[in-house]
Design a protein around this nucleic acid. Structure first.
Length: 492
RNA sequence: CGGGGUGUAGCGUAGCCCGGUAUCGCGUCUGCUUUGGGAGCAGAAGGUCGUAGGUUCGAAUCCUGCCACCCCGACCA
């Protein structure tokens, strides 16, 4: 394989794009802004899905599926939500094609087949779901409803990037209905915790939990909670959101329930989601100039075994040892690939699996056969060591855990070193331009100030951290009083 | 959606200014030799030059429309 090598330092964007394509995660498709997720990339997404799905089920949720299309009249019911998404909606207007009479080899939209009501391709599903929940909910006995769906959504973005922002993307969206405000808020916060635990434990990415400002809030939500991660180039990435929707959708779709006391009340709602954008976070957080670095908990292949041999006699003997090790590792649930293809050389395979981020590589050659040893190389630190073939399983189990932890700690150290507290506007601009990362600063709480800061520096308030300390100060921009610091950053 | 750039074999590219049907490397195929960090030699295959028109005796090259990607801006729950 021959491809353009660009380091993170030279051109971070290009490095990212090359990596996505070269590591076989995804590629551009024939459709503008839409990507093909390739088998290796999809395997990582499937591991994310599987784990998140377990966590959703463990917190009492069930999966369901709602339609891709939303009738315009339903879509526009919740005004703020509709307004927020209006500019990026794909719209279906016709339901039939016909042969073009001027050119029999071509098709054309049949003008006779115009839909009476246009269908919006969902940018999110609140509208279709709440119009359905209306029928599901009459009494407090019907609550709560705890539903999640795995789906695709379409947002006609002007500018796209593989995984980070595509016109169509895959995600999950949880939509819950509750009898009380408190319960809905509790659900919102609970799912934020699920996301942060997933990000930290599985993706090995430390995240900051917070609340969005009004400017950044989900259209139609009362509060938007989020997890924010920091990428290696110092830009922040929103990795998941959990919304407390209040009674906005219940009112828009007239969803009421009868309380135990026999009173009719509007239902309280939440929604929460993470998307294939997490793939982008995973790539940008850990990978290096040689390729992907995957945390063991999400790596489709955790251990690869590469034989080094001369002639088929040696290979047969190595096969025997390698397969034995493979079986032992698989017995304890480790995913192993033994790559004994004769069509590629060992060095080629080493580079290939490094590009693909496989956490541990074992290689076995004639020397190892003689000595009963094996060479182990770890992707995260690039360290190599020679081990005895006996007792390998336990060591590898431990090492996978260590790699997982090491990636997290490395990312955490980087993140912590890149949260800078500033107190003056000059300092703010200085840090933003030279160092990047999160800037912890006082803010007067107004949208105007946030907007002006954004205009002048491109930095936005990523969140008001949940663990914000009460601290009297002055807004870094306006000098007006503030009682706590918020996090600013340039963001994806 | 505005400004700029790019599009040539599976990948990366030369050629374009100054028109004469295409360069090089990697990869692919065949054979032999190789195998502890992307093997070597020899031979071979593979291209309607993004797409649709136009100018011309002749277009990868000049002109126009369209498509896609990249960068900047606007936009982005």
């Amino acid at each position: 394989m021959s491809y353009e090598k660009v380091s993170r330092e030279e051109d971070y964007n290009k490095w990212y794009q090359n990596l996505v394509v070269n590591a076989d995660l995804a590629e551009h498709s024939a459709v503008r802004g839409c990507m093909v997720i390739k088998p290796y990339g999809y395997a990582i997404w499937e591991k994310m899905q599987a784990q998140l799905d377990r966590m959703f089920k463990a917190t009492g949720h069930s999966n369901a599926y709602f339609p891709l299309f939303v009738p315009k009249s339903l879509f526009e019911a919740e005004e703020k939500n509709a307004e927020g998404f209006a500019k990026e909606c794909a719209v279906v207007t016709h339901y039939r094609l016909k042969t073009n009479p001027d050119d029999k080899s071509k098709l054309m939209v049949d003008p006779e087949a115009r839909l009476e009501e246009e269908l919006i391709v969902r940018p999110t599903s609140e509208a279709i779901i709440w119009s359905t929940y209306k029928n599901w909910i009459q009494s407090y006995r019907d609550l709560p409803i705890l539903v999640n769906q795995w789906a695709n959504v379409v947002r006609w973005e002007m500018r796209t990037r593989l995984f980070l922002r595509t016109a169509e993307f895959l995600w999950q969206e949880g939509h819950t209905a509750h009898a009380s405000k408190e319960e809905a808020i509790q659900e919102t916060v609970q799912m934020l915790d699920v996301y942060s635990e997933f990000a930290e434990t599985f993706m090995a990415i430390p995240v900051i939990k917070g609340v969005k400002t009004e400017n950044e809030r989900f259209a139609g939500a009362e509060d938007t909670y989020c997890i924010e991660g920091l990428m290696q180039d110092g830009k922040a990435l929103q990795m998941g959101t959990s919304h407390f929707l209040g009674q906005n959708f219940a009112k828009a779709f007239d969803v009421k329930f009868t309380t135990q006391q026999g009173v009719q009340e509007y239902v309280w709602a939440t929604s929460w989601g993470v998307s294939t954008r997490l793939m982008g976070a995973l790539i940008m957080c850990h990978s290096d100039d040689d390729g992907l670095v995957l945390p063991p908990n999400l790596a489709p292949i955790q251990v690869v075994i590469v034989p080094i041999y001369k002639g088929s006699d040696q290979l047969i003997k190595i096969d025997e040892v390698a397969n034995k090790i493979k079986n032992e590792l698989e017995l304890v649930g480790i995913s192993v690939k033994y790559d004994n293809r004769d069509t590629q050389k060992p060095g080629w395979k080493f580079a290939e699996y490094e590009l693909k981020g496989v956490p541990i590589r074992l290689s076995i050659g004639p020397r190892d056969l003689e000595n009963g040893t094996i060479e182990l190389a770890r992707r995260d630190t690039r360290e190599k060591e020679v081990l005895q073939q006996t007792d390998l399983t336990g060591k590898i189990q431990n090492l996978l855990k260590q790699i997982q932890e090491n990636l997290y700690l490395k990312a955490e150290t980087f993140r912590d070193n890149n949260i800078t507290a500033v107190n003056t506007w000059d300092e703010f601009k200085e840090v933003l331009n030279t160092k990047g990362g999160f800037i912890s600063a006082h803010w007067d709480g107004t949208s105007e100030t946030e907007e002006t800061i954004k205009q002048e520096t491109k930095a936005t308030i990523r969140c008001i951290p949940l663990n914000q300390k009460a601290e009297i100060g002055k807004c870094v921009f306006s000098g007006k009083p503030s009682n706590g610091r918020v996090l600013f950053a340039k963001a994806y």
